[in-house]
Design a protein around this nucleic acid. Structure first.
Lengths: 184, 184, 184, 184
DNA sequence: CACTAATCGAGACGGTACGTCCGGTCTTGCC
DNA sequence: GGCAAGACCGGACGTACCGTCTCGATTAGTG
């Protein structure tokens, strides 16, 4: 009955927003500029995303693929994969942006849910890996999957965002060995 | 040789900023208001802190005490203390503010240093605890202190800021046990 | 096609500006106050007049009526009218403001045009009076209208703004007699 | 008894102020910059000139020589000299600055006196020329010196500052002839 | 030779206007 | 109803100037 929204605008806006966001950060994304650059009215943007944060989330989410649950048969290898996957995911989004999202989430419950949905899959993958291992080997390995997952993703997050130290494959592997107790 | 800055203004501004910041959050802190409330010219505020973030950091830093390195003789107890201490430190500053600081740090190297100085002491305490234990018991426990510390503070940070789940004493204890391998 | 500017705001702003300007002078006209008084956002004011001077010019121009070309049949009487009319026009705008406009014009060609348009009509009236007289009486009076006009308006301007001495009807009359040579 | 002021500072400040003033105008003259450029404390400047306007006046005055009263024996020639001298005096100071001074004078009586002292000598010279002529030729020429002077300097001022048209020797001569009635 | 009083450099300070920037809402007229 | 265009509100931001002030360090001349 009514005129449908222009789907091309959606795509173009997302693309343009992504570019600005990743290259120049949260503050550099300005609805007014965005609209002008895409050749669209500001109202058209606001009709789709009621708030800057909503747009940002969409951008970020659309850039994140599924988080796979690796299964090589070796728990340590799988967890290392998860850690490195998360590292890549953050890198894809920029250290700055990842932090900005968490900050924004802290004052907007609506956003919090969506931001959590962005990073929790990585933790979920870690949990899945550990639980699957536990399920396979009858003799329980006695690892609390939730705790191990927290330690893993927490350490990754910390090094990337709080400390600022990087995180390479070697560190990831050692981290996993320490967390699972394989080292002992 | 020149007229010295008014130290009272420093204190009054910091105090007023702290109050606003913790009670009403980052956005509520407005230089203009702050100056008026303290009875000082806006320029006087800008002379001390070129940016809101600089002021916020100062406020936060001045509100953080030393991070103690507990020593009960029991590594797990000590690490649990560290975790809970960090939790309190973040709470004292507000979840939102802690996240905002990390975000701001991501785009300002100058700030990054100061923000790191805010949280790294907790990690350092964890490292110290583990290393001390290793030094005492000759039969090496074979724990990589750095890794354990990362897992610990990382998990705390994650639960408080990324996940948004809380963190109580019970969780902290279980986390430590998992990280040090005491569970096994 | 887009939302039109609110014409009422234009009028209200001009009126309020005029009041402030004439009662309290150039410096007292502050965009922020003006906006607040009219109940309009500051941006709305800046959208209309990019600069204080632009606004002032508009105010002044809107307060200046047509400059009539008097025609009593007597050249001296007519010129005296022109001189007194100009005096009133300056008084209506304040000595200070008139001078400030000329000063501002000296560094902004855009403004210069508009300021010139404010005062030149008086000179034009003088020119018209003299030329009309010349056209009527065949026996040429041999007065250069342009020169006479310059002398007239120049003298008026000088006494009002540079010297600061006033200018009454008697002086105006004597001035005209001297300029037209009626005295001789 | 007390330490005397440094005379070199006076000179250096005046020179530097003059340069800025003539090249970039009234607003470009900033005490803070001036002091830094000359290598002097701001207080040193304020000790000499309590206000920006006071300094400006000094600069302008120091750049103006005596206004001579020409005496070639021919009134018209002499008056033309006066007009051209005034033109040069204004040019030496910049059209903008001359206007700005008059504007500033309009809101500061103290300044008004000094600004008047800047330009009135030209008018005085014109008066002197005419009166001297009247005194010489017994058969009174019947010119009101004051009026003639007003017409002359007024016209010059008008063309230079209000109209913006220039003023060359030819115009000056014609102006004088018209004002003295020599044309008739 | 000490004392006194003004000068000087440096820069903090109060006060205030400026013009800009953004987020988000609203209005108008066309499709 | 979607859309382009852009006006509008509200409010923070950081900068700029003016003129005053407070330090501590120099200078003269005076007693």
């Amino acid at each position: 009955m009514a005129r449908p929204r222009n789907a091309e605008s959606d795509a173009a806006l997302l693309a343009a927003a992504a570019e600005t966001l990743l290259d120049h950060g949260y503050d550099a994304l300005v609805f007014d500029d965005l609209a002008r650059r895409v050749g669209v009215a500001k109202t058209t943007v606001y009709r789709r995303w009621p708030t800057k944060n909503h747009l940002v989330i969409d951008v970020v989410a659309s850039g994140q693929g599924e988080v796979p649950v690796p299964d090589t048969g070796d728990v340590d290898d799988d967890l290392t994969s998860v850690a490195l996957g998360m590292t890549r995911a953050i890198a894809a989004v920029t250290r700055r942006l990842a932090a900005e999202l968490v900050a924004a989430a802290a004052s907007d419950p609506d956003l919090a849910v969506r931001v959590a949905g962005l990073w929790s899959p990585h933790r979920a993958a870690a949990v899945a890996v550990v639980e699957r291992a536990a399920a396979r080997r009858r003799p329980t390995v006695d690892l609390d999957a939730e705790l191990v997952a927290d330690q893993l993703v927490g350490a990754v997050w910390w090094r990337l965002l709080v400390d600022g130290d990087g995180l390479d494959e070697d560190y990831a592997r050692r981290l996993v060995r320490s967390a699972t107790g394989s080292a002992r």
